[in-house]
């Protein structure tokens, strides 16, 4: 079977029959009715709404962390934040040295 010729024939068949452009009765009325029902999407309004929703949990977390840092017992043995950071960073090296 000559597939190139078959392809040409079938494409020609598709070209020879343009699709129907018939419109169902009162279709435009249906779309207009849908537009009236469907609220218009406003990107900025959606974004603003999302921010407002997120604000309450953010404030709650902020208050909890504030309270925790204020009321937490000062029994920590560390001398400073920089010392803690250095210890954490070099912990792997220290352990590596010990294993040898």
């Amino acid at each position: 079977m000559n597939l190139v010729e078959l392809e040409r024939k079938l494409i020609a068949a598709a070209r020879a029959t343009p699709p129907n452009d018939r419109v169902p009765y009162a279709f435009e009325k249906r779309i207009i009715a849908l537009l009236a029902v469907r609220p218009e999407l406003d990107g900025w309004a959606q974004w603003g709404k999302a921010l407002w929703r997120a604000s309450a949990p953010c404030v709650a977390i902020m208050l909890l962390l504030g309270a925790w840092s204020y009321f937490a017992p000062a029994g920590s043995t560390s001398t400073s934040l920089s010392q803690d950071f250095e210890n954490t960073l070099l912990a792997a090296v220290d352990q590596n040295g010990e294993s040898w």
Binding site: M1, E5, K9, L10, A13, A16, T17
Partner: peptide, 19 residues
């Protein structure tokens, strides 16, 4: 089409269904 490619018309419904 296989027997005689030029005899298979492009305007046939069967060709449209095939494509």
């Amino acid at each position: 089409f296989v027997a005689q490619p030029e005899a298979a018309s492009e305007n046939a419904d069967a060709a449209r269904q095939l494509i």
